[in-house]
Design a protein around this nucleic acid. Structure first.
Length: 419
RNA sequence: GGGGAGGUGGCUGAGUGGCCGAAAGCACCCGCCUGCUAAGCGGGUAGGGGGUGUAAAGCUCCCUCGGAGGUUCGAAUCCUCUCCUCCCCGCCA
């Protein structure tokens, strides 16, 4: 969230940022509630101060008049305090609904049409035959099964079978190895269920609960991404500045109910209720965060480069970047069969927006007051990288060549789908 | 799931109704002392919020001893609920 102090001092800046992001921001209500909260709090606290004084005096004098007065102002303070707390609760709830500001380098725009390609790597492959889609290939090779998944679970689920399942395992292993051995991330196996406080921390709640699966009757939710447990790993902590940046990588399963998304990307291994990915999370100082963000993006790109997949780096515009993000890049990988780019990674920096919600701080130097950390995350990368991989490495005979980087992880096989 | 013991500051740990935002120790910081270091001596060091202040500092008030309620003029301390940790038993991948 944004500091209340900032909203007080420069409400226009907050309003403008929200407007350019296409998000509502209850700035006027907040200012009014803030005024009322402070008013009630002042009354309550001065009554309380009187009560403390009288109580203290009574403890030595045992004067019945002090006791009576203490009781009286005690009641006054209780009433005013209740009022102040009620207002504060409303205020806090609204504060959680104010979108983040954005970096000055973010292009202003309304939709994905205004996003900017900042660089490309590789080029569209020329297969020399009409390319097939990954789901066509996957089903005919028997490595993806959507029909049975629909029967077992419902629409938008998938089975990976045989070499397909092995490919997922190989990719996870490969990505984790690169990030832990070469990029210095610490591997984590996080819980897939988290409580609502964690989801508030990463800003999935209170606004986006509809996208999540919740366990009935319990304060537990299935994670939509490992970002949630990884970022909240240090919730309510004051970190040692020497330990920063903290870098974590996790392979996890992700669950999204994707409300309202019906009709788009209904075919293929694309928009599933349950998928997996490798996620990168960093916790840094304010000074380091932009540099660490660029490095995290490069770490994610490394995976695509090693896999030999053509991609573009897309800088998201204000209208397409989301509620919590301060700046965001997508990595879009070319899919010859789908004949379009598919988002395989999304890398974001949040500044202190999440850290304020999750209360993650560090002490810049000994004796200095704690400051909120900056958080960064990105997919490194999503398992649906399988899609461009199948489509890029398909052969005219319908089999899939195993990319060099994955060969050590695929048990020596050269071709996927060969009997 | 059943029975028992606990959750206090950066850490260890005392505190069972007011003199406690909290002893003592460790760690850390400043100073003294010492040829240097160590030891010793003196002092300091929790977080959040309101008011005041151009701001930093300062001054002042309030809150916080896992969390939420309650009793009381007054709660770390008493009561209720809840979460978490540890030990024993049961069950289990």
């Amino acid at each position: 969230m944004l500091p209340l102090e900032l909203i007080r001092r420069d409400p226009d800046r907050v309003r403008r940022a929200a407007q350019l992001k296409g998000e509502p921001a209850p700035v006027d209500e907040i200012l009014e509630l803030d005024r009322r909260w402070r008013e009630h709090q002042t009354i309550a606290e001065s009554a309380r101060a009187q009560q403390n004084q009288l109580s203290k005096r009574y403890s030595t004098t045992r004067n019945p008049a002090d006791l009576a007065n203490a009781k009286h102002v005690g009641e006054e303070s209780k009433t005013a305090m209740a009022e102040a707390e009620a207002v504060k609760r409303q205020l806090d709830d609204l504060l959680l609904r104010v979108p983040n500001l954005f970096d000055e380098t973010v292009p202003v725009g309304e939709s994905e049409a205004d996003n900017v390609v900042v660089r490309e790597w590789g080029s569209k492959p020329d297969l020399g035959f009409p390319p097939r889609t990954h789901y066509d290939l996957g089903e005919s090779l028997g490595i993806m099964d959507f029909e049975r998944a629909a029967r077992v679970s419902g629409s938008r689920f998938a089975f990976l079978v045989g070499d397909g399942a092995r490919l997922e395992r190989a990719l996870a292993q490969f990505m984790l190895d690169v990030h832990t051995r070469e990029h210095g991330y610490k591997e984590v196996m996080p819980p897939a269920l988290v409580n609502s406080a964690s989801l508030v921390g990463t800003a999935n709640l209170p606004k986006f609960g509809g996208d999540l699966y919740k366990v009935e009757g319990q304060d537990l939710w299935l994670i939509p991404t490992a970002e949630v447990p990884l970022t909240n790993f240090h919730r309510e902590e004051i970190l040692d500045v020497e330990a920063l940046p903290l870098k974590y990588v996790a392979y996890s399963h992700c669950f999204r109910s994707e409300a309202g998304a019906a009709g788009k990307d209904t075919r293929g291994f694309i928009r599933l209720h349950h998928f997996s990915k490798v996620e990168l999370v960093k916790i840094t100082t304010a000074e380091q965060s932009m540099e660490e963000f660029e490095m995290l993006l490069a770490d994610a790109e490394t995976i695509l480069q090693r896999l030999g997949l053509h991609y573009q780096v897309m800088l998201m515009c204000t209208g397409d970047m989301g509620f919590a993000q301060y700046k965001k890049f997508d990595l879009n990988v070319w899919c010859p069969g789908l004949d379009r780019y598919l988002e395989i990674s999304s890398c974001s920096v949040f500044n202190d927006f999440q850290a304020m919600r999750a209360n993650i701080r560090y002490r810049p130097s000994r004796g200095a007051p704690p400051r909120f950390a900056h958080t960064i995350n990105g997919s490194g990368v999503a398992m649906r990288v399988i899609d461009p991989l199948l489509e890029t490495y398909q052969r005219a005979d319908g089999l899939i060549a195993v990319p060099e980087a994955l060969k050590p992880y695929m048990g020596g096989i050269e071709l996927i789908g060969a009997r």
